[in-house]
Design a binder for these strands. Structure first.
Lengths: 219, 219
DNA sequence: CTTTTAGTTTAGGCAAAACTAAAAATTATT
DNA sequence: AATAATTTTTAGTTTTGCCTAAACTAAAAG
């Protein structure tokens, strides 16, 4: 696999995130990257010359098969590094994203594989997101949003969506972590807020915007 | 501490390596960096605008106090990552340099300090080179070249100079590692080659060019 | 004391990657 | 359908960092 610039890799990542099936608009991509539309036009031109994307002017950009594979390999690195930072170095799960963004650009197949081995070939990162495998296969995306469960069920938190540091602060304040189990006490039909009871007996109220970013399975 | 480009950091590193006390010539720096002299002239101009070096045209470049501190912080990262790669991920000591060159550019004070803690705040890297401390203090440079010891003494290998992959291959072939002890059986006054006996009774002959890159202390 | 040589700097280009401003194409609205 | 609003592209700049070629400096050789 050839080597790519960080900028290229960032565009590939962004495209993958915005959907690897449907074409992505210049504007959406610009917003996600944090650049102006004109810069994006130039960038995707460069990417298409490397066969990482196909561009239809005025219509949109789409990753090629090669581009998708590259995206997954970057995501693999990103999520393995996040796992390392949390599990091995003791960072908080709200701190690791910007660091992983730097580490994911380090080029070395062997490093990635050794890291994966060292971590025990994890299938999911500290946020519960699936870590792509060497071959590009994706482990399952875990859980459903809390709102999908019915009153009376016991659930286990398995994933949280990265919704900014305030979200994580809130989770920490409520002592909510992956693996925690709760009884669903109520789900408001009015504002979709959720009421949980922890095994220690504490009751937790979650707003809709909180609960929508928390995913769980039946315990 | 401000943030610097990788190119800048590479120049700072090179300058430090070529000697932080005496001024360095454009040519030496160019060779070390792997760029042309003209590129170096421009680069050091940029660096001097950031107060990282002082330049006297046609005479030479020298790191400022600020530059030396930056150099040490990069070296600290480099050597901590090398330690991690060897001790934690099981890389060979001959493999880690290019990887550490990438990892050393990751910007995060906290990451460095957590890494150091995780590794047990090592003072020397897998080659026996001193790891600068947070404050810039340098642990001792270990050992003397094998040729400095006299016949009959028992010595312990504590450091090897990075002299390319063939050198490391040779060390591996001879099973020479940091911490190994040997008896000095002979030092040739003719070609400065060295003859060692390992505890297991094997005798090893080292050419001058080999022994000059191997450092030891009295065991 | 001039000339040659080695080393350094300037000058001018090129590529990547960003920007602004203006033109063109698309989509939405009367 | 015609016009307005939005989006995208083009065109021209900027910065970083490299290059080659030409000019310059300093030191060594004649």
């Amino acid at each position: 696999m050839k080597t790519h610039t960080e900028s290229e890799e960032n565009y590939i990542k962004a495209l993958y995130h915005l959907g690897s099936d449907n074409p992505v608009s210049n504007g959406d991509l610009a917003q996600r990257i944090g650049a102006k539309g004109s810069s994006v036009t130039q960038a995707v031109k460069r990417l298409s010359q490397k066969n990482l994307v196909t561009v239809v002017p005025y219509k949109g950009v789409q990753l090629t098969k090669e581009g998708i594979l590259l995206a997954k390999s970057i995501l693999r690195k990103h999520r393995l590094w996040e796992t390392f930072l949390v599990d091995t170095l003791g960072f908080g799960w709200d701190q690791v994203h910007p660091l992983a963004e730097q580490l994911e650009h380090v080029q070395s197949e062997e490093l990635v594989e050794r890291l994966s081995d060292f971590l025990g070939t994890p299938k999911h990162d500290p946020h519960g997101d699936p870590i792509p495998e060497r071959n590009g296969q994706m482990p399952p995306v875990l859980g459903e949003p809390l709102g999908a469960f019915a009153k009376g069920h016991t659930i286990k938190v398995v994933r949280v969506e990265d919704a900014g540091s305030e979200f994580f602060d809130q989770l920490d304040a409520m002592n909510i972590n992956l693996g925690n189990t709760y009884d669903v006490e109520a789900i408001s039909s009015f504002d979709a807020s959720v009421q949980l009871k922890s095994p220690s007996g504490h009751t937790i109220w979650l707003s809709k915007s909180m609960s929508a970013n928390i995913y769980a399975v039946h315990a």
